[in-house]
């Protein structure tokens, strides 16, 4: 196990390095330049463009820029945003909490609800419930997040006036203490509902199909023939086997939690990482983009490692030697 961990950590570091390199090449290959975008289309100043290009080292050859970047990175410094001159670490740190609150809660709710619905539907395969939930799951799976979000706003905020339209807090009221927590939850509801609804279908379908598959295996038929109680068969044999693909999918979803709900964050004006990423891409803010990609690749590597460890714990067939 120790050797396995060491190997996985080393390969993780290598993967992070390679993904950084790829990101660096790709974002610099994309047309556009942060300084000319910054200067805008109303009276750009050639002097400002020249002086900022020099200040941020954008006039140097690309390989040199990459080496410079790695150099500061190794000192533990993610650098400064070209657009706002704030440390990249600060910009990212400010956004992590709102994103985790929305995305992590969303994934957890989706995995619990989706899996429960999936198992129930599988056990009642062919029932009206199964058919209904199955078809609804396709609808939500194919619904674009931004559209669903806007519909939620139109329905629950504009028509029924039950929830606020956008943002994370009521700016006019400016609550503090426990009222603030309630206020954030109130604002969280619609984006969370949207994020959860779009993610439920995958968890639903994977749970449903793996339960159905395990239920039709020979050993289950044998248990049934031997007269074992249906609930015991399910609890001890079906569930444990059927949950494995869900764990994989949950791991993957967790890994993308930080950057995966860009569109929903934008629609609901939720101040998270996704929006930061989108802005950084639009403005070609290279240091900020690299910082976000680094955070994402580290979090993906770490969650993948955790998923592997969890596997070993729940599946006796898997042992790392």
């Amino acid at each position: 196990m120790k050797r396995f961990l060491l190997k996985r950590i080393l390969s993780g570091v290598l993967i992070i390095f390679i993904s950084l390199l790829i990101c660096f090449v790709l974002i610099h290959a994309a047309p556009g330049n942060p300084v000319t975008i910054l200067a805008g289309h109303d009276n750009p100043s050639p002097e400002m463009i020249e002086s900022l290009t020099e200040k941020y080292g954008l006039d140097k050859p690309l390989p040199m820029q990459f080496v410079n970047y790695l150099g500061t990175l190794l000192k533990g410094d993610l650098g400064y945003s070209i657009v706002s001159d704030k440390p990249v670490v600060t910009l990212i740190a400010e956004k992590i909490f709102p994103t985790l609150l929305l995305a992590l809660t969303g994934v957890i709710l989706a995995v619990v609800i989706g899996t429960m619905l999936g198992i129930y539907a599988a056990r009642k395969k062919g029932s009206r419930f199964d058919v209904a939930v199955n078809s609804i799951s396709y609808v939500f799976d194919s619904t674009p997040g931004f559209w669903l979000g806007l519909m939620m706003i139109l329905l629950f905020a504009s028509t029924f006036k039950l929830f606020p339209t956008a943002g994370m807090v009521d700016l006019r009221a400016g609550y503090t203490g426990s009222a603030k927590v309630l206020d954030i939850l109130h604002h969280l509801f619609l984006p969370l509902l949207t994020v959860t609804l779009i993610q439920i279908p995958r968890f639903f379908r994977i749970a449903r199909s793996s339960v159905i598959q395990i239920m039709s295996e020979d050993f289950i038929t044998t248990f049934r023939a031997a007269g074992m109680k249906e609930s015991q068969i399910f609890r001890d044999y079906v569930f444990k086997n059927a949950i494995l693909p869900t764990v994989t999918l949950f791991g993957i979803s967790l890994a993308y939690v930080l950057g995966g709900i860009v569109i929903v964050e934008i629609v609901f004006a939720w101040p998270g990482m996704g929006r930061l990423l989108m802005d950084a891409i639009m403005k070609r803010d290279y240091p900020l983009l690299m910082g976000i990609y680094l955070t994402l690749s580290v979090s993906i590597s770490v969650t993948m490692l955790l998923v592997d460890i969890v596997y070993a714990a729940i599946d006796p067939r898997i042992r790392y030697e």
């Binding site: 806007l150 956008a166 943002g167 629609v267």
Partner: peptide
């Protein structure tokens, strides 16, 4: 004066309609 950051113009319009 409170400036509220709303990146999507459709959302901003709804927030305006809803008195936010």
């Amino acid at each position: 004066i409170i400036y509220s950051v709303i990146p999507d113009s459709n959302t901003a319009l709804q927030a305006f309609n809803n008195g936010e």
